[in-house]
């Protein structure tokens, strides 16, 4: 055995001499199963502080019921939130949890990755009649809306605001950054001058005296 006296540090660290401070430091040990047993093995005083009846342990009990280390790290939390389903309510709900979550899900980089993961896409189905006069829905085309409307920070398609102007083969899409008309033949899109608020809307077409086509949207607020 080595001489214990020789192992004694020459300058004891002052915060470790104060029970309260030491408790605070031990509280911050990682939540690994080995942390507390190891701390108790240091000396009698440390062991006493780790005792279940000590003030420190009482404080530890007051901590959140399920401390989740992966959620304490911004990078890891972002990775987890990226994996939420692409439902319109996922991100708004996450931003209502606390300031930190709100900051993470509002980050442009995060939103770009979230969209890239979930590909906000639109499937266009067409009711077709085949040679036997049987009709059925056929997937005509899938439109990657997020790629088409490549505007940062990324339009969030709000689900009820979609409509199809069939006679002109145009699609009306309302997003949080504005409303767009997409021409399905050319795949060109045009941003409508006015932002469409949430409410009921009805797209229709209008022609001027020279016969030029005007896409119009009639919005009914409730």
């Amino acid at each position: 055995m080595m001489n214990r006296r020789r192992q004694r540090p020459t300058s004891p660290a002052p915060p470790l001499d104060n029970d309260d401070l030491l408790s605070e430091i031990l509280l911050r040990l990682p939540p690994q199963p080995s942390s507390l047993p190891r701390a108790s093995l240091v000396c009698k005083r440390w062991r006493r502080l780790e005792n279940p009846n000590s003030a420190m342990m009482n404080r530890r009990r007051q901590r959140p019921t399920s401390p989740a280390p992966p959620l304490d790290n911004d990078d890891l939390l972002s990775e987890i939130l990226l994996r939420l389903p692409p439902q319109p309510s996922s991100l708004p709900r996450a931003s209502l949890v606390c300031k930190r979550w709100r900051r993470l899900v509002s980050d442009h980089g995060f939103l770009r990755r979230f969209r890239a993961r979930h590909h906000f896409s639109l499937d266009l189905w067409k009711n077709k009649t085949n040679c036997d006069d049987a009709t059925g829905w056929v997937l005509e085309r899938t439109i990657q809306l997020d790629k088409l409307l490549s505007v940062e920070p990324g339009p969030r398609i709000t689900s009820p605001c979609l409509d199809f102007v069939e006679e002109h083969n145009m699609l009306f899409v309302s997003t949080r950054i504005g409303a767009f008309l997409v021409h399905l033949e050319s795949m060109q899109f045009k941003k409508l001058p006015q932002t469409i608020g949430m409410g009921y809307y009805y797209p229709f077409c209008s022609f001027d005296t020279k016969g030029n086509f005007f896409p119009c949207v009639f919005t009914l607020y409730i």
Binding site: R63, P64, S66, R102
Partner: peptide
Amino acid sequence: PEEIRTAFGIEYDL
């Protein structure tokens, strides 16, 4: 959001 805060012991600071 309330259930998320409870499940993960997150403090409400909004």
